[in-house]
Amino acid sequence: MSGKVKCAIIGSGNIGTDLMIKIMRTSKNLEMGAMVGIDPNSDGLARAARLGVPVTHEGIEGLLKMANYKDIRVVFDATSAGAHVRNNALLQRDGKKVIDLTPAAIGPFTIPVINGDANINEPNVNMVTCGGQATIPMVYAVRRAVERVVYGEIVASISSKSAGPGTRANIDEFTETTSKAIEVLGGAERGKAIIVLNPAEPPLIMRDTVFTLSQGGGRDAIEASILEMEQAVRKYVPGYRLKQKVQFEVIGDNAPVRIPGIGYATGLKTTILLEVEGAAHYLPAYAGNLDIMTSAALVTADHWAAQYLAKEAA
Rank of each mutant, 00 (worst) to 15 (best):
K97S: 01
S214C: 14
V250R: 15
K70F: 04
T102R: 12
A265M: 09
H84M: 11
A314K: 15
V128A: 09
R241P: 00
M32A: 11
D291H: 13
M229A: 07
I106H: 07
I106V: 14
S12G: 05
I120G: 03
N254M: 09
Q215S: 14
I15V: 15
I21R: 15
D253C: 03
G62V: 00
P137R: 12
V5T: 12
G82A: 15
E277C: 10
T167H: 02
G132Y: 09
E61Q: 11
V237R: 05
A67E: 15
V75Q: 05
A297T: 06
R73E: 05
N289E: 08
D71N: 14
I194F: 04
A141R: 03
I72L: 12
Q92T: 03
A305Q: 02
G252H: 10
L19S: 04
E189N: 13
G13M: 06
R190A: 09
A46S: 09
N198H: 04
L64P: 00
T110Q: 13
T110R: 15
D43V: 04
D253F: 08
M32W: 04
T175W: 10
I194R: 06
I72W: 08
D71R: 14
I259M: 05
A305Y: 02
D94C: 02
R73V: 07
Q307V: 05
D77F: 11
G288F: 05
A104E: 13
R190L: 03
I195Q: 10
T26P: 00
N29M: 01
Q133P: 04
L204E: 14
Y69D: 03
D77A: 12
A169G: 07
K192H: 13
Q231R: 13
A104I: 04
L290Q: 14
E173I: 00
K311N: 12
V150W: 02
S162E: 07
W304P: 00
Q244N: 11
E230K: 08
R148H: 15
L298F: 11
A181Y: 05
G152V: 06
G261D: 05
I259H: 03
T212I: 12
